[in-house]
Write a protein that binds this DNA or RNA. Structure first.
Lengths: 143, 143, 143, 143
DNA sequence: GTGGTCTAGACCACC
DNA sequence: GTGGTCTAGACCACA
């Protein structure tokens, strides 16, 4: 574990940008966005908190500065964070709610696609519900 | 609706490649793949049936011959259709089962993502199940 | 089993062109060539015997006349059969030996490729010999 | 021999895409695929290593960019390499094992064909084994 | 710079 | 006519 300047203290709730990987599916900037949304949405990154600078985060994640910049821009466009010229980047007041809302919307979208594929594969509603229940139990156990 | 030579007659089971659009999300060739998988998986395109030639389908869908070719190649690699030089392209014997299996796999993948987003958004298992039920009822009505 | 005019009698050694299929790998004309070579090489089609006419064979195999023509041309080029204008097509005197020789050559070619792939996959000579023995036993049982 | 930027130095283990030729049997893209599979399977191209870009390799091999692209796409579909937009193309973690497995499968296929041709040519099992042994010794000497 | 998609052509083998 | 291969370009998303 590497401690960096933007982790303020040895608090178990401290802010850690989740790891990203060029091997993972999806572009790097999207992985950064998702990671920050998760941290904000689940309350580990509270409103008003300063995010690491472009340069610092780029260095930590070993990605281009432009990649971090793009992620922050997208998050600002969604209202989850806001950049103050010369001061830094901060989690917005409504950041947590917006993050959760974004995840809810994304979930509905994915779910709609999943159900369409399922019904087209010939699965009945009962079978689909059963599959969802099983998956939820698996998730449970993983936590 | 354009009737072409490979649509045999006013048969309600006739073969119609679903429409595609460059405005729709996802590459054109993927839309073609998905459309044919759906037709094969749901039994409207039966094993042994000849698909339209690259050139014919390209003309109908108003896309490049190469885009159709790419879609057919991918479908052949999945074993759903098979191309015979000089003869044409045909639905494979196990095409229907493979199509449904592919849709099942895709559905599980999307569902897993949807559930992860849902739980991260703070939804409880009960709420998720409720959302799934509601969506399934909506689907029902659309049909 | 369909009896056709070129099968001269209910002799278990009678001449039967093996079935071909557009689903099988390889072009149709090659399947015809291979089938005739096998019949000639294994003595079921003896020197001097007349082969079916282009038209008759094309009809039986349900392929284009041009496809049969091409197969016969290739076989004549190899010296296995010879066409007498107006009389028909006949198995050559040295047809059997030439067929077996062609198969031997083809076998050596395939074997060389197989051994190269095997060694590149990391298999030792002993493992390769073992695989060959096992395959030969399987063949045995099938016969 | 042309030295290019992706060949790291006069290291005997250096990465060299094998030469291809339009005179050789088989399509160019297949030759590229086979060459890379061999390099990966035999450990000269290790997991994580970056392959040359489409454009660079196309220039070196003097083929179209598209031909290289097609080869890379096929290799990615087999799981041997993976392409990341904007980053490049890399040997996958399981690339070596998958390459060897692909070669083993291909070898079995060719061997089965070779044995069938051999037995049809009238060769006995003993003769076939003898031929295999001789060929293996020849290979030995070539190395 | 990289790869991802799409296009418009060519030539060949097969039927 | 069919599909199989190869070519030379375009434009876009990503880093």
């Amino acid at each position: 574990m590497v401690y960096t300047h933007y982790m303020l203290s040895p608090d178990p709730q401290r802010f850690v940008i989740p790891p990203i990987s060029s091997a993972a599916p999806g572009p790097l900037y999207q992985q950064i966005i998702d990671g920050i949304k998760r941290e904000v949405g689940e309350g580990r990154l509270r409103p008003g908190t300063a995010l690491p600078s472009f340069r610092a985060l780029a260095e930590d994640l070993m990605v281009s500065l432009i990649t971090v910049k793009r992620a922050y821009e997208d998050l600002e466009r969604e209202g989850i964070i806001h950049c103050k010229q010369g001061l830094g980047t901060f989690v917005s007041e409504k950041g947590a709610e917006l993050s959760r809302q974004a995840k809810r919307d994304q979930a509905r979208l994915l779910l709609r696609q999943a159900l369409r594929e399922s019904t087209e594969s010939g699965a009945t509603n009962a079978e689909i519900i059963k599959m969802v229940r099983e998956m939820l139990e698996q998730h449970q156990e993983e936590d």
